[in-house]
Write a protein that binds this DNA or RNA. Structure first.
Lengths: 138, 138
DNA sequence: CTCCTGATGAAAATCGTTTTCATTATAGGG
DNA sequence: CCCTATAATGAAAACGATTTTCATCAGGAG
């Protein structure tokens, strides 16, 4: 269902609603795992066969700019995109099927305070990401 | 000083000791910030002017394979390499100068247990990385 | 010192991504 | 509902980073 919301958001930011964008948005919004531009291209062409790979790149760029999707960093590569978390959440990824799940975990402040004190850094941001096996893949 | 240890490790794994490798190893081992292949190339050519970029790639590949260096993921890109941490440590990066500092922080097990229970995942690994400003850059 | 073989650098190939450009299609105004 | 300005498109070319190919070179065992 987020596909419609994303299209609406694009429109509200002055972008036009096109067949190509719709095809891309519907694939990415429906996926529970991060997809590379090429994967999006292949999947979205089922709905809109004369879609160009270039348009996939351009649409992903706009979705990222509106914070509707986010890039996912993995040992195997950092080109894949996923529907963004709402608020500050962390990612849990299945190493077998790629399934992504967000979780909250913000009792980390104590740790950060300790690190800041020990190192003299001012801490501005953090990345926490877990890897494992989802229920289906164990 | 780790440069000599790295060269020794390369040799122990059956790789030859060459001028080119020495130049690359000395740059990466001495750097306190992550360097891209191109940065290594530029810096290492000061010591060995007929170094080829290809050799930089090949040497970094071997160092990574021996776990002497590790790839660093950052918002701006994921191509840079840094001397690897000893044991399981996490990275703290200065957003201004790139300075990298490792820290330990393994009172995270409680959090992981909770997440595992809530999500049904078996957790195998994790990435924790902090971004901030080092003492010099504040 | 010699020889075998791994390592090298240059050039070409390759891959993912971005730019260019002529054409098409959306959305707002008449 | 049609017209029009202009954003968006896809194809092709350009681009930058990385990898492969290949003839030559050099490390190190004997």
């Amino acid at each position: 269902m987020s596909a419609e919301l994303w299209l609406q958001a694009l429109q509200e930011h002055g972008y036009r609603l096109t067949e190509s964008r719709r095809a891309v948005v519907e694939i990415v919004a429906a996926s529970s795992r991060a997809l590379t531009p090429l994967e999006v291209f292949d999947l979205a062409r089922a709905a809109h066969s004369d879609l160009g790979l270039v348009t996939v790149y351009r649409t992903l760029e706009k979705l990222e700019e509106l914070h509707l999707i986010q890039r996912v960093h993995q040992p195997g590569g950092c080109q894949a995109f996923l529907a963004a978390s709402q608020g500050h959440q962390h990612l849990l990824l299945c190493q077998h099927c790629g399934q992504a799940t967000f979780f909250e975990g913000d009792n980390l402040d104590q740790l950060f305070a300790t690190i800041a004190q020990k190192t003299g850094y001012v801490i501005k941001d953090h990345w926490l990401q877990l890897f494992g096996l989802c229920q289906n893949c164990q």
